[in-house]
Every structure is written in C-alpha cells, then in structure tokens.
Design a protein around this nucleic acid. Structure first.
Length: 433
RNA sequence: GCCCCGGUAGUGUAGUGGCCUAUCAUGAAGCCCUGUCGAGGCUUCGACUUGGGUUCGAAUCCCAGCCGGGGCGCCA
C-alpha cells in the first residue's frame, strides 16, 4: 500500500510511529546536509525532513526529483513544533511512482501568476492548486444539496435524450450531427421532454445534465457546453408554486455553500445566505425602476445586460440580493409560457445581484392554445408533433424552471469568468483539453 | 453576428525606430549552506506569432494571415 494516511489524517496518535504517505513533490528546499521536501496530497501538504548523514543515497534520490513528481514514502512521523503541521516525516524508503518532466508548463506554487488561457491549456496541473480544487468541492456540495432537497420534495431524478430530432425551443443555435441517415441535434435544454413527462403521472421530476449551444458568443459568462438543473412539476395552481420550490432550492444550496468554510477560506470568499422569501418584482415595476435611472428601455423589451445590472444596484440599495422578476410580457417569453391575460405571461426570472440565474414559468397545458402560441411565435406546429402528442391525451397544469450550474457557481463564488466553474470548458475556440 | 484589444524565454513581464549583444522576476541546470517553510547566496541557460512591406536601421511603424482575450447581441 502506497499510503496509510493523508497529510490531514496525521495527528498525535501517529507520532513516533511509521506511516506511508504519497503525493506530489511540491517543493524541495535543500540546505546542504539537511533538506525539506513538501509533499502534497488531496488534503494538504506535509514536510519530509531528510538528513544527508542518515542516508546519503536516499538524500540524493529525493533532492534530485523534479517538482511535481509522484512519490510514496514510508517514514517515521515525529512531532516538531517548528513545522507548520506540528509534525514531520523522516523518510526511510521511497517509491518514485512518476517522474515529472521539466520545466513545468505551469507552476503549481510559482510566485508568478499565469494567464487564464495558459492555465486552461494545462488544466490538469492548474487543478492541483487547492484554491481551484475548492471550487469543485463546493460545486459537489451544492449539487448534493440540490439532489437532497428535490428528493425530499418528492421529485424523481430523470434523464432525457441529449440527441434530439429538432431544436427544443428555437432561439439559440444548436449543434448539428449525423445520426445514421438522418440529421440530429445536440440538446440545448430538456424543456420539451421534461414537460412531456408531466403527462405520465410522475408529477415531479428533475434532471441534472449537459446541454449544448452553438452560439458563437465570446464572453466570460457563456459556455458552449454547460450543465444545468431542470425541474418540472404538475398540478400547480400558478407559477407561484414553482417559484416557492425554486427559492427554497436556491436557499438550501447557498446555505450549504456557506458551510464549506475550509474551501471558502482558501478561495478567500464569503457567502451570505439570503432570506426567504425572495422579493417579487413585477416586470412593469422593474421597467419603471430602471427608466427612472435613465435606461432607454421601453415596455415589452427584455432587460438588457445593463438594465439588469442597474436593477441589481437598485435592489441592493434596499439590501436585496435575490429577487424574482414576474409577469413578463407574453411576447418576450417562449411559446410554451402560459399567458396571463392579453399582454402578460406567467413567466419569471430569478435574479441575483443583477444577473439572471434561473428562469421558469407556468406552461401551457391546453393543446389548442399551445398550437396557437407556436404559430404566433413564427413556428410550425408540424415540427412539434411528437411534443404536442404528449398534450393530446390528458395533460395536467404544470410549470418548472432551469438554471445553469456554472452561472450559479459564478454568482455564488463571485468568480469573474464562468470557465473557472467547469473542469474543462468548451467555448468558441477551446475544444481541448 | 457587430465592435474593441492583445501576441517578447517554460511562466509572468519591461521595452513605442538606433542606447537591444532585449529588462526584471519566476523557472530550469549546477555549486555553497543542518531547521527551511514565498528559504538565502553564487554561476549558467532560455524569448521578440507568421508572411510581406516602409526604412540606412524594425520587438517597436504599415498591410495580410494565424492564435488569443474582452464588450455588446443572443441566452442560462
């Protein structure tokens, strides 16, 4: 066995006994007759203290290792107050498991910063840094909470096709691919499938999966491959039922992130847990608020990036970070959104500090109305036959929402680039690693 | 899709026509040092995105390409 303990697992109990530790050689400080080797594993670092007079061969072998080589060391664990961990390991034997090439394309502990692009080109090495790993440990924690919360509310986890016959909703560009003799597309969202499932009697479903968008955008807020949490629920009275689930879900995830104190510390971030319920702002009021601050927006238009930011600032003045924008104009929402009178819809967005993190709505469940709305949106109902079929034989009132996990994390951790929140980002120009 | 910006050692940079045989840091290779922890000291190594052009002279100016970053739009 190459490892008996991780660096963090060693405490007083292990002092004055033999342990096996394994990991990456982070740094070697050679003082001539004594050398210190910093070994890094998943939990942190520890120090090997190597004395030349004790074993000249072992000394020579260890100090000549290139940084980031992988080794396993058996040694004697000794208490020492001079060392940060409170202990050091005096090595007795070493297994060199992998010798790293030099020079490193990216230093793990170098004193110079690397460009983000260089980091992504060498993402595996970049991911060795504790602060980068912390992002993904928090991602793991909040997604675990999403599963737990949704299951506690009787949601069933489902997985719908990612290779689909037609674009889900129009709007965004989709990736085309060859499917034997047919043309197919990569899913941009599970929208049509999660709605179809509402006609099955499963009533409450959620899906956490990948989606693909072929938009040639080049911003720090967009990815061409991203992951999302999607929820759909039946027998709702109106969109308020959906918003309640969403706000509790977001609250639970934010709260869980706030409990990741170790990770937040290495990231030097703080998470402020929002208060429930989130403020509801009608679209009409949002428009008047930003108009009062000289935005050129007209009623009926979507809020521009600048308008959203402005509204975020206005809400912040009242101490509000999270808020719903409700009752959007019907024409600014997708065809499946339930109308609310002539002009309005039962669609909403959830905003956090001026950035949209989720959008949802009550959906149309009446097939005639759905066809009418498809036409009004310039779409041909014939292209949606398979979807419409789910509505023809008994479809309850339903609604749902979806949000991108990377966008969510970006807001949660106040990152300035969405690519920080995904292991191997796919963007306009990046297809590797 | 529209617009803006950038490309100098492995990494991060200085350099805006001659003082560049290109700065500094970091790194790598080596030497000295028994308590380092951003170790220290000394030596060495290593770069101007590509192709044209202007000029006596180009890292520097112009044109084109390649590669990259960002803003807006679209969206999540």
């Amino acid at each position: 066995m190459y490892r008996s303990h991780y660096s963090k697992e060693i405490s007083k109990k292990e002092y004055n006994s033999s342990v096996a530790v394994a990991g990456w050689v982070e740094d070697i400080r050679n003082l001539g007759s004594i050398a210190f080797l910093i070994l890094r594993d998943k939990t942190g670092t520890l120090q090997l203290t190597i004395l030349k007079k004790k074993s000249p061969e072992l000394f020579e072998q260890l100090i000549s290792l290139p940084r980031e080589s992988v080794i396993s060391v058996k040694g004697f664990c000794k208490e020492n107050e001079k060392v940060r961990n409170g202990y050091e390991i005096l090595p007795e034997s070493v297994d060199v498991l992998s010798v790293a090439e030099t020079p490193l394309p990216l230093g793990v502990v170098d004193k110079v910063e690397a460009d983000f692009d260089t980091r992504l080109d060498n993402r595996v090495i970049d991911l060795r840094k504790p602060d980068i790993q912390a992002i993904f440990k928090i991602r793991n924690a909040v997604l675990a909470t999403a599963h737990e919360y949704l299951r506690s509310q009787s949601f069933l986890e489902v997985h719908t096709p990612k290779i689909i016959a037609s674009s889900s909703e129009g709007g965004t560009d989709v990736f085309k691919l060859r499917y034997f003799e047919k043309e197919a597309f990569l899913a941009q969202s599970p929208q049509l499938y999660k709605q179809s499932l509402m006609a099955t009697g499963l009533d409450r479903v959620y899906e956490i999966a990948w989606y693909f968008r072929a938009e040639e955008h080049n911003t720090r807020r967009h990815l061409n491959e991203s992951t999302a949490v999607d929820v759909e629920m039946a027998f709702i009275k109106d969109e308020e039922d959906v918003m309640k689930i969403l706000e509790h879900l977001v609250h639970a995830m934010w709260k869980r992130a706030g409990e990741c104190s170790e990770e937040l510390e290495v990231l030097k971030k703080t998470v402020t847990v929002p208060k429930l319920p989130f403020t509801r702002v009608r679209y009409d009021d949002a428009v008047s608020k930003v108009q009062a601050r000289k935005s050129p927006i007209q009623w009926g238009m979507d809020l521009s990036t600048e308008d959203e930011r402005l509204l975020g600032d206005i809400m912040k003045e009242d101490g509000v970070d999270f808020y719903f924008i409700t009752k959007y104009p019907l024409e600014s929402k997708p065809f499946y959104t339930m109308p609310d009178g002539e002009k309005y819809s039962r669609g909403f967005d959830l905003e956090c500090k001026g950035i949209e993190i989720s959008s949802g709505s009550q959906r149309i469940h009446d097939v005639a109305l759905l066809k009418e709305r498809l036409k009004a949106c310039g779409l041909d109902p014939k292209d949606f036959d398979a979807y419409l079929k789910a509505f023809r034989y008994g479809m309850p009132p339903h609604g749902g929402f979806g949000f991108g996990i990377e966008r969510f994390l970006m807001e949660l951790l106040d990152m300035n680039n969405i690519r920080e929140c995904i292991l191997f980002p796919r963007d306009r120009s990046r297809l590797t690693p």
